[in-house]
Write a protein that binds this DNA or RNA. Structure first.
Length: 590
RNA sequence: GUGCCCAUAGUUUAAUGGAUAGAACACUAGCCUUCUAAGCUGGAUAUGUAGGUUCGAUUCCUACUGGGCACACCA
């Protein structure tokens, strides 16, 4: 729909930086400074852009201070650069506030939801796999970190011009399934009293959630009485045989979990282009393992079938247990191959927590040895733990998504009602849901991936400070002003009005901040780092809120009002665009 | 034992070689007859230890200390 020329045009701020770089290069008669060398001074009183002169000084055998002074005396000012000043080893540039404001605001108002996007990825086909969960187990905050992080990265890569496909891989086949089915059969029938406290969940929530509770019970019982393991093994064999009542029960309960997951994805507004199931790859995997064993690529050791990767310093990877049953790589290998051959991707990303980094190094090495040259990346992140220790689906020491969601929703509904007694139930609920989902996602994304998150429920359910609610609130505030102004579309805002009316220093800082946004998208993409965007948006919102409190937007001269409205519209646009990349929706009012 | 990750304010954290280490929470003093107070303004507190590289180190290197994780039949 949108004009592609707009979409792929270089951001204005980059053009300005390039002009500066060109001007410097002309003075020193050498191609040495690039646009990316221009940084933003830590203190805005120093200027708007800055060139550290350390490298240049080295090249021309001067001190960096001399270099900065030399350049400032020589530089020819172009129309947007008002003046330069050397501060120590830095050459600082002060831009023409009005011209910059006009340029940036026009840029944003014309590109709208496309502002900040780039074509850096060159349409390369990337598949990103995340939310790899087990059926028959609880869905907890650990999974939430995975899916929020994975989804944000997928969106960010898309914004950087990659052709991304989001996929999920569900482990619906394994001993955990047999355990759950065993407990379901045994205790639901024979010991109803013990399971009855759980029954209400079946109605209230969903059956997938219920199964997760059963799994915990199964692990407890098996711990108490180890002989039951033979019964579980039998169920496993029955499921593998693909016939009989156990197999049918597997099919039925598997669907409960899948439905439960679908409900969660729907609530989170996260969509996958494709979902793979382990059970669909097992047979293919066993064939493949058989072939590789015949070719002696895989060998037998201590009764198990392994890939010996010791010469690559990667130890050994066990593929089949001594009893011949399959381990994780059996399905992972054919899935990876399908991605390369059938989906024809150039790059395969796996978003899985850091504890599996050795596993992925081994898997990638095997694929490489099998001749796959495509790029494979394990995008790892640290796990989520609870204040009292590690989470464990096995023991039920988890905060399930469902419980968290419900608790959060209750709290937000209360907060909204406190503020808006006149809102009807439906309106309250719709807005509350968006605030809750935003809060959960933001909480998971705002810290860098290599930090362990100690999940504190009190902390997560806060709605002030560095939270998504703060950003949503900022947008709601802007909406409110705009709706009161009766200026509903930017058509009524003329750029000649903007030109000379945004000279306030806070307005200027906001403009600079807005101009940076495309660079943030790029950095977030290069580093697979959504927290970069979260941080940026928070700073932008902080600057806006400061501005909001210091000036009147509506009660002022018509022309100034027009200019200020244009400015806050662009702020809103950028916050909305950024939140979109984090998978967070905004609300009209709150 | 080997490898990987982490260590910054009371707490959660930002800064991947540059200017005065930036926030949030908590605590505290203010700001609503004025565009949404889920907001704004002010206030104290921080780079685990010892070396090294560098004009410059929270950032890179080495050792140590503390915490976490992984390393053959869990996923």
């Amino acid at each position: 729909m949108q004009n592609k020329a707009i979409l792929f045009e270089r951001p204005q701020i980059e053009k300005i930086k390039q002009d500066i770089a060109d001007a410097i290069n002309k003075i020193v008669k050498k191609d040495i400074v690039e646009a990316i060398n221009l940084i933003y001074p830590p203190n805005q009183n120093f200027g708007d852009l800055s060139l550290p002169c350390f490298e240049l000084a080295k090249e021309f055998k001067k001190t960096s201070v001399e270099m900065a002074e030399f350049l400032t005396s020589k530089i020819k000012l172009d129309n947007i650069i008002l003046t330069t000043k050397a501060i120590g080893p830095y050459l600082n540039f002060i831009l023409d506030k009005s011209k910059l404001a006009t340029t940036i605001i026009e840029e944003i108002l014309s590109t709208k939801q496309f502002y900040g996007l780039n074509s850096f990825g060159n349409k390369e086909k990337v598949m990103i796999e995340y939310s790899n969960v087990n059926t028959h187990k609880e869905y907890h905050v650990g999974h939430l970190r995975n899916i929020c992080y994975g989804d944000a990265v997928a969106k960010i890569l898309l914004a950087n011009g990659y052709k991304t496909t989001s996929v999920s891989y569900i482990n619906d086949f394994g001993i955990h399934v047999a355990k759950t089915i065993w407990a379901y059969q045994t205790f639901l029938k024979e010991e109803k009293s013990n399971i009855i406290p759980l029954i209400p969940f079946v109605e209230e929530k969903n059956k997938g959630y219920f199964l997760g509770k059963i799994y915990v019970r199964a692990c407890e019982e098996l711990e108490k009485n180890k002989e039951n393991k033979t019964a579980v093994d039998l169920i496993m064999k029955n499921i593998e045989s693909k016939q009989g009542s156990d197999y049918e029960l597997w099919q039925e309960t598997r669907q409960w979990s899948i439905d439960g997951l679908a409900k969660i994805y729907d609530e989170l507004k996260i969509k996958f282009d494709q979902i793979f199931y382990e059970s669909e790859f097992i047979d293919r995997g066993l064939d493949l393992v058989g072939q590789l064993y015949t070719k002696r690529f895989l060998v037998k050791s201590e009764g198990a079938v392994i890939a010996d990767l010791q010469k690559y310093d990667l130890g050994v990877m066990v593929i089949l247990r001594s009893d011949g049953t399959a381990l994780y790589p059996v399905a992972d290998l054919p899935l990876a191959i399908e991605k390369f051959k059938k989906c024809k991707i150039n790059k395969s990303i796996y978003v899985v927590d850091t504890r599996q980094s050795l596993y992925f190094r081994q898997l990638f090495k095997i694929l490489e040895l099998l001749g796959f040259k495509q790029e494979m990346k394990h995008l790892s992140y640290e796990f989520v733990k609870l204040p009292e220790g590690m989470m464990s689906s096995r023991t039920g020491k988890v905060i399930t998504y469902e419980d968290l969601y419900e608790q959060a929703l209750e709290k937000v509904v209360l907060e909204i009602k406190k503020r808006h007694e006149d809102w009807n139930e439906e309106k309250v609920n719709n807005i509350a849901k968006k605030i809750v989902i935003g809060a959960l996602k933001f909480e998971m994304i705002k810290v860098s991936a290599d930090k362990v998150i100690t999940f504190d429920i009190e902390q997560a359910l806060r709605f002030d400070g560095f939270t998504s609610a703060y950003l949503q609130y900022t947008v709601a505030r802007i909406n409110s002003i705009i709706s009161k102004s009766k200026v509903e579309s930017q058509k009524s805002i003329k750029s000649e009005v903007v030109l000379d009316n945004l000279k306030d220093i806070k307005e200027h800082f906001l403009i600079i901040k807005l101009a940076k946004y495309p660079e943030i998208i790029k950095i977030a993409g290069e580093n697979y780092d959504p927290s970069e965007i979260a941080k940026y948006l928070f700073e932008l919102a902080q600057e806006f809120n400061d501005y909001y409190h210091s000036v009147q937007i509506l009660k002022t001269e018509e022309e100034i009002m027009q200019a200020r409205l244009a400015l806050i519209m662009t702020v809103r646009q950028v916050v909305v665009n950024g939140l979109e990349l984090l998978g967070i929706e905004v609300v009209e009012e709150m």
